[in-house]
Design a protein around this nucleic acid. Sequence first.
RNA 1: GGGCCCGUGGCUUAGCCCGGUUAGAGCGCCCGGCUGAUAACCGGGAGGUCCCGGGUUCAAAUCCCGGCGGGCCCA
Length: 980
Amino acid sequence: MSYGDFKLSPSYNPHAVEKAVQEFWDRNKIFDKWKSWRGRPVYAFLEGPPTTNGMPHVGHIRGRTYKDVVLRFHRLLGYDVWVQGGWDMQGMPVEWEVEKKLKLRSKKDVEQYGLEKFALECNALVEEYLQYWREWGTRRLGLWLDLENAYETRRPRYLEYAWRVVKRAHEAGLLAEDYRVLWFCPRCETSLSDHEVALGYEEREDPSIYVKFRVEGSDNEYLVIWTTTPWTIVDNEAVAAHPGYAYAKVEVVVGERREYWWLAERLVSQLMQLFGVKEWRVIETKRGEELAGLRYVHPLAEEVPERASREHRVVTAEFVTLEQGTGLVHIAPGHGPEDFELAKRYGIRVTNSVEVNGIYNELGGKYRGKHVYDVDKEVVKDLKAKGLLVYEDKIRHEYPHCWRCGSKLILRADRQWFITISRIRDKMYSELQKVNVVPQKLRDRFDVFVQNARDWNISRSRVWGTPLPVWRCKKDGRILVVGSLDELKKLAKEVPPVDDFKLVHRPWIDQVKIATEDCDEWVREPYVMDVWLDSGVAWLAAVDGERNKELWGKLFPYDFVTEGIDQTRGWFYSLLATSVLYTGRAPYKTVLIQGLILDKHGQKMSKSKGNVVWAKDLFEKYGADPVRLYILSKAAPWEDLSFDPDEVRHVLADLGILWNVARFADTYMSLDGFDAERYPLEEWLGRGLEEDRWVLSELNSLVAEFASYLKNFEFHKAVAMWRDFVVETLSHRYLRLLRRRVWSDEPTPDKYAAYAVLHHVIKTVLILASVFTPFVAEYLWQAYVRKYEKSAPESVHLAQYPQAGPVDKELVEAYRELFAAFSALAEARNKAGIKLRWPVRVAYISGAKHAGRYAELLKYLGNVKEVKIGPCPEGYVKAAEGQLEACIPPKLEPELYYEALAREIVRRIQVMRKEAGLEISDSIKVVVETNSEDVKNAVEHYRDYIARETRAVDLLIGQATGGREWDISGERVRIEIKKA
RNA sequence: GGGCCCGUGGCUUAGCCCGGUUAGAGCGCCCGGCUGAUAACCGGGAGGUCCCGGGUUCAAAUCCCGGCGGGCCCA
């Protein structure tokens, strides 16, 4: 039971299979042969590069399985495939982990540690993770990506494409330096993009305070505002009222004092109740626009004297609502995007006294040197002490946190660099309309996101990233954008003595001294770029496109990309943006958006919950093929998938059946000396039986539909259909029919025809399986297919997708009916209490269309002497299957009793043969000892039958010296067998 | 706060777009049977408020509205 190194062991063992196959692939360079180009049409895949930070888990495995299926399928279809791997190796996640490892708490710590050492640590860290990704995220999965030629975003030849794109943006007037309010992480000391902010929304509890601002020139008239960020009051510059809303001046008595509070009229009674004010009355109302211009005293004028020196007043704004707060909105232009816009409109000063690290600077007066998180509490205390705090509460709301370190984010105004996406948004949208986004139902999200796309903040105040290639003239502030490393070298007056790899990274790049005729000293803007720009230029950078135009021209736009739904706003977007900017076109033709991976309870996987399933654990426990098959069959790729490791064993059973089908074939083909080249299907099919033509019809349907499902990315349907064919049609049905033909020693032509058919079916089924379970398909190809067909391709992965032959629909229909009739017959036997081993004289079938066609097979399957077509005689036991009805006599016929006993004896001998470990071809001697005359008569009558079925050369009735005692229908029978 | 997806026996799910026999299947469970490829298979059975409530309709798992639970996205 072996061919070469591939043995068909009694049962399927994924680990042994995968190990043997991996060695075979390596030794024979199958992957190289698979990926090499033969001048065929190219199917170009662009790898969404995993961040080599953290270990691959089942979510990655899901996406990477889909990639592999699509690539293998297209190779089978005859395409030359482009399967370059890629790795995303820079960015904040890497820095964050290094900081944790080195126990660095702030950017100052990093600087003290040394930027050079820090950058090298980051590089070492991604290098380390890369090994895991190569092994567990790729090789052990059986994912055939070209890792030798994988692109790496940290390489000079790669990252300079991000520079090219920025330069192109600059030339097109799309690079902007702007002062804007952005989210910052004070811990990481950098701004974040919209995408990064979106990753970190979490519910939290914050203060919810109502504060009164005293109206200038009065000692008891106030404007009442509401905020959840007390620290921003330090930088308050105005109060906004809606121009159309009514505002009330409310006379209130608090303690001993009589005061006048301004707030929205509609909210007065509910707020008075909230504040616990019992005595109040409205004495005047004004519309917001009438209130405008009213001046007030900054509530922290004493704490921050600078503020007292300026005037503050009420302005109007449409964005004011009455859903929360008081209808009067505290405006801190340095800490809110709407506030900022309003300030620009009214010429109000933008004050930001908070530095990037969250510490107040000299503009912060009393709060100078303190951290924003502490000031948040201190401001409340100070307001309370000054009697300006009207009411204090807590609020639970969704608020953004840093996606890496979890710190509460703050909004602050700062100078940053942008790509003004708003100006190419329409072009991006129209290009996106040409892309096939799968599934249709998720494309809306992508469309909407692109239509609403905002300018892209690309600058980050970090270290381990692609440096922003913008230099500024120290003298006059002009800027210079460098588009490549060569260009930089040409411009440089002085270059640090390091290799190119270091030269394109911080801190070394900042040691480059540039001077030009018109400017003595250029200074680089101290930023790196958003990491999404790194992977975003892969459509060009992966193949160093500007230097390899011919290759790039064959690949672009790429046929296929696929990632998770979260990448709609991530990579899918950054690819589209940079490509439209640079080439005016979308960089891909088809985008497959994958659903999320959840744990078995439908919960999102996260490290903190501890429910992450790691690739390594999964493969070590189950093997890659079962995991792949499970993932593929459980859900459509775009649906969320709840992953339950225990369910993997279900698909294991299916692969076990595939394995056993090959073993079955091997068992009999080797006994009978079958050879696919000596018995070609085309010649021998004519000598076969109808069931052979039936199974080929079923196979042809499979071949056609499997391909059409895969083309639509309906992997789950393709796999389900394959499974159904292998388990039901092939194993349960066809092989059951085949038994009677293969057991015979006679070299009948129909047996060889059956072998030719079976061989063709198994071979075809393995080629289809090669796209989703590449290891076991290869193993069986080597162990079985190549054993019986020497000229078969060296590897199943070098085969071609089979041509689908004709389908005889009527034949398929007839066989469907046959198995329904058998099912009804079995049910009738069950009711009558007659087991299948006992022959039945006659069965009637009615309501069938094709009964005449398969009567012989039904006799065999149902162990019936005669099948009659027609209605049931009186007193017979009936059972129905749909329209079809089967019935049998209610009692066993006496004349069939000996035959029944003979079958019982055969069955016992077969069990004993197997227990004795005999080969199928071994002959035996049998002794039967019994007092039962019936059993003795049965043996005498059916001596030839028993001998033939059990390969007995000698069958005696007499004294057994050993063996085993059985109970056959109440009779004690001792049977002894010996190898002849 | 806004948008979207999901919710079907113990578990996993098909059906829903396009309303219409008895809601189908796999796993598990119980009973019976088969078996020299098969820890497989075949027959039968138990097991369902199709998340809840309302509406449309002769008729709703399916269409509409409102909840609840899980998830995603946007703010």
